[in-house]
Design a binder for these strands. Structure first.
Length: 593
RNA sequence: GCCGAUGUAGCUCAGUCGGUAGAGCAACUGAUUCGUAAUCAGUAGGUCAGGGGUUCGAAUCCCCUCAUCGGCUCCA
C-alpha cells in the first residue's frame, strides 16, 4: 500500500478502529456509534453511561492504542453471512447503534472488519465498509495523537442522544504529526480573540450581552479604512448608498415574512403597554431598501438600481453558537440590493463577482465558490428558478471560474453563490454571497415599467462583499496574525528619540508626519531605546519605527527600522513621508523600501 | 439549546488538606539619558464572575445563574 495523501484517510480510518478497541478495553460499557476519517484526522463517537471522558482518559486511551499496535494485528474484511443474526448479536451486546446502522444497510452486502492477532483470534470487530490498511504495522504509535473530547448528537440530530466524541489524528510518520501539531500551535497564536486582547482591538462585555462587540480605537481605525475603501468602490461601480433605521414596526416584518420564518432569531422590543405598536430590531436591511425603492417609480431604463448600506442588524443566536468576532448577535453587513430586469441579471452577477475578486486581491486572500440550487420547498415560479440558476452558472462559466454545486441548498426564496475565504487555521469562512430573491419583490409588490409599457416585477439580488464587518475583521486579524498592512495599521509609525535631549527634534518629526496624515505615535517616555523599539515592533506590531539621536539631528534625518525586517538606513523626513504615503495609497503589503 | 471544561489584579497565571490572596508583565512614582526587539528601585492595584447553601471559618465543598472555551446542532 502506498503511503501518500490519498491513502492517508484509510490509515486514519483504521486508526479509529484501534481507538475504539482501546476505549472498549478500558471502558467495556462504551457503545460504539461511528468513527470516520475527516480532513484533519478522525473521530469516534461513543455512548458511555455514567462517565465523561477526561484529558487523563485520553492519555490512557492513547497508551492503550500504542500497546495494541505493538501486537501486530491484521485487519480482515468479513462479509456478514446472516444479517439478521448479526443484528441480533449486536443487540445482545448492547451495540444498539451498530444494530441500527446494519438494519439500514442490510441489503448492501454489509461487511465487518475484524481486528485479529497472529493466532487468528478476533480481538475487535466493527461494522464497516472499509477499506483498511492490511495490518497495524502501518499505524505508527508515535504518529497518532488524541486531541480532544466533545459532545456530538447521534446522527447529527439534536433530538437524538448526545454521545461523546473523541477527536484524534494520525499520520504516516512522526514528522508529519509534529508538523501538524506545530501548525495547530501557530494557528492558536493567530486566534483573533487572543490578538484582540493583546493588541487592544475589541472586547465583549457581560454587562452588555454576549455577541455584542465593542470596537476599541485600534480596530475602529482598521474599520474606518475599510469602510472608506468600501464607499469609494461602491461609488465607482454605480451604487447609491443609503441609511435606514435600526427598528421597525412588526407590520413591516409581517409583510416581509420574517415574523413567520425568522422569529426565533429576532429581538423584540418589550412593550410598556398594550396600546403601543410592537417594534422589532432589524435582523435584515432588505425591507428598508425595498421601501426606498417604493418611494419612486422605475422603468427598465432606470434599472438596475444598486442600493448599498453598511447596515447594522441584530440576530438572536443560540447561546453556544457565539465566538469572538466571527459569530456575533449584532453586526454590520456591507449590504446591497440590486433591482434589475431579468435581462440584466447575468451582467449584474458578473459585476459582483468582479467586485469580490478585486476586493479579496487587495487583502491577498483566496476564496472558493459554491452555488446552491433550488431546495425542496421553495417560492416562486420553477421556470424563474431554472433561468436564474442557468444565469448564475453562465456568469461563472464564462469567466472560467471553478465552483462547487450544492444541490438543494439554496434559500427557499432563491438560489445563491457563496464565496468562502480561507483563514489561518485553514477553515473556510463565508464572506461574500450573492442571493437571488423571487420572494420579497412579490411580497412588497414592487414593479418597474417595461419597454412594452406593462408593469413587471423586478429581479432582486441580495449581496455582501465582506459579509459582516465583525466577521471580516476577525478573519483579517487571523490572516495577518495581527500585523496589519501599512494602510490598515492602527499606528503606522512610532517615533523614538534616543534620549531626552532629542525630544524636541522627535516632536518636530512627529508633527510633520501627523500633518502629512500619517498615523504616528511619539514615544518620549524615559525608557530605554531597545525597550521602546521592542514594544512598538513586536508587541504593538507598528510597521515603522523612526529612531533619532545626535547623528540624525545633525544630518536632519531619521533612522528607519521596519517591522519584521530590521534596520533600513537613514532618510530625510520628507523622503520617508513620500515613500510611506505612496505605500499607504497603493495599499501594498510590502513594507521594505 | 445540548455534552464537556473553565472563570483569581488591566494581561498571563500560581494558590497544598477549607484557616480571610500571590508572582511576572502592564500601570503609577522616582532614579537613569541610553545607538537599534525587555534599565533599575519603589508604590498602588482583588466583594476570587454573580447569587444562594454547608461550615466556627469558603477562592477552595454543594446548588443556581451569567460568561468564555472545545465540539454538536443552528447559521433563511
Amino acid at each position: 500500500m502506498e503511503k501518500n495523501n490519498e491513502t492517508l484517510h484509510i490509515l486514519r480510518h483504521s486508526a479509529s478502529h484501534i481507538m475504539a478497541q482501546a476505549v472498549q478495553k478500558i471502558f467495556p460499557n462504551a457503545k460504539l456509534a461511528i468513527g470516520p476519517a475527516v480532513d484533519t484526522g478522525f473521530y469516534y463517537d461513543f455512548d458511555l453511561e455514567g462517565h465523561s471522558f477526561t484529558e487523563d482518559d485520553l492519555r490512557k486511551i492513547e497508551e492503550e492504542m500504542k500497546a495494541i499496535l505493538k501486537q501486530n494485528l491484521t485487519f480482515e474484511k468479513y462479509l456478514i453471512p446472516d444479517v439478521q443474526k448479526q443484528i441480533d448479536e449486536f443487540k445482545a451486546q448492547g451495540e444498539i447503534y451498530k444494530a441500527e446502522l446494519l438494519e439500514e444497510h442490510r441489503n448492501d452486502n454489509p461487511t465487518l472488519y475484524l481486528t485479529k492477532d497472529k493466532d487468528g483470534n478476533v480481538l475487535f470487530n466493527d461494522l464497516c465498509a472499509g477499506p483498511h490498511v492490511p495490518n497495524t504495522t502501518f499505524i505508527k504509535g508515535n504518529a497518532i495523537k488524541l486531541l480532544k473530547v466533545a459532545g456530538a448528537y447521534w446522527r447529527g440530530n439534536e433530538k437524538n442522544k448526545m454521545l461523546q466524541r473523541i477527536y484524534a489524528t494520525a499520520f504516516w510518520n512522526k514528522e508529519d504529526l509534529e508538523k501538524y501539531l506545530n501548525f495547530l500551535e501557530e494557528a492558536q497564536k493567530r486566534d483573533h480573540r487572543k490578538l484582540g486582547t493583546q493588541l487592544d482591538l475589541f472586547s465583549v462585555r457581560e454587562e452588555i450581552g454576549s455577541g455584542f462587540v465593542l470596537w476599541h480605537p485600534n480596530l475602529a481605525v482598521v474599520r474606518e479604512e475599510i469602510e472608506n475603501y468600501w464607499r469609494t468602490e461602491h461609488r465607482k461601480r454605480g451604487y447609491v448608498i443609503v441609511n435606514t433605521p435600526q427598528i421597525a414596526k412588526s407590520k413591516l416584518w409581517e409583510i416581509s415574512g420574517h415574523i413567520d420564518h425568522y422569529k426565533e432569531n429576532m429581538f423584540f422590543i418589550r412593550k410598556e403597554n398594550e396600546d403601543e405598536d410592537q417594534y422589532i430590531v432589524k435582523p435584515m436591511n432588505c425591507p428598508f431598501h425595498i421601501m426606498i425603492y417604493q418611494a419612486n417609480r422605475y422603468s427598465y431604463r432606470s434599472l438596475p438600481l444598486r442600493m448599498a448600506e453598511l447596515g447594522t442588524v441584530y440576530r438572536k443566536e443560540k447561546s453556544g453558537a457565539l465566538s469572538g468576532l466571527t459569530r456575533v448577535q449584532g453586526f454590520t453587513q456591507d449590504d446591497a440590493h440590486i433591482f434589475c430586469t431579468p435581462e440584466q441579471l447575468v451582467d449584474e452577477i458578473n459585476a459582483i463577482i468582479d467586485f469580490v475578486s478585486d476586493t479579496m486581491k487587495i487583502f491577498n486572500m483566496t476564496f472558493e465558490v459554491e452555488l446552491s440550487t433550488r431546495p425542496e420547498s421553495f417560492v416562486g415560479d420553477i421556470k424563474n428558478w431554472e433561468l436564474a440558476e442557468a444565469g448564475l452558472k453562465e456568469a461563472m462559466d464564462k469567466r472560467g471560474m471553478k465552483y462547487e454545486i450544492n444541490e438543494g441548498d439554496g434559500a427557499f426564496y432563491g438560489p445563491k453563490i457563496d464565496f468562502k475565504v480561507k483563514d489561518a487555521i485553514g477553515r473556510t469562512w463565508q464572506c461574500a454571497t450573492i442571493q437571488l430573491d423571487f420572494n420579497l419583490p412579490e411580497r412588497f409588490d414592487i414593479k418597474y415599467q417595461d419597454k412594452d409599457g406593462t408593469m413587471k416585477t423586478p429581479v432582486m439580488l441580495h449581496r455582501v462583499i465582506f459579509g459582516s464587518m465583525e466577521r471580516f475583521h476577525g478573519i483579517l486579524i487571523e490572516h495577518f496574525a495581527g500585523a496589519f498592512p501599512l494602510w490598515l495599521s492602527p499606528q503606522q509609525v512610532c517615533v523614538v528619540p534616543i534620549s531626552e535631549r532629542h525630544n524636541d527634534y522627535a516632536s518636530e518629526v512627529y508633527n510633520k508626519l501627523r500633518n502629512a496624515g500619517i498615523r504616528v505615535k511619539l514615544d518620549d517616555r524615559s525608557e530605554s531605546m531597545g525597550y521602546k523599539i521592542r514594544e512598538a515592533l513586536q508587541d504593538n506590531k507598528i510597521p515603522y519605527v523612526l529612531v533619532m539621536g545626535d547623528k540624525e539631528i545633525e544630518a536632519g534625518k531619521v533612522a528607519v527600522r521596519i517591522r519584521g525586517i530590521g534596520e533600513a538606513g537613514t532618510l530625510s523626513v520628507d523622503e520617508f513621508i513620500n515613500i510611506v504615503k505612496e505605500k499607504i495609497n497603493s495599499k501594498t503589503q510590502e513594507l521594505s523600501f
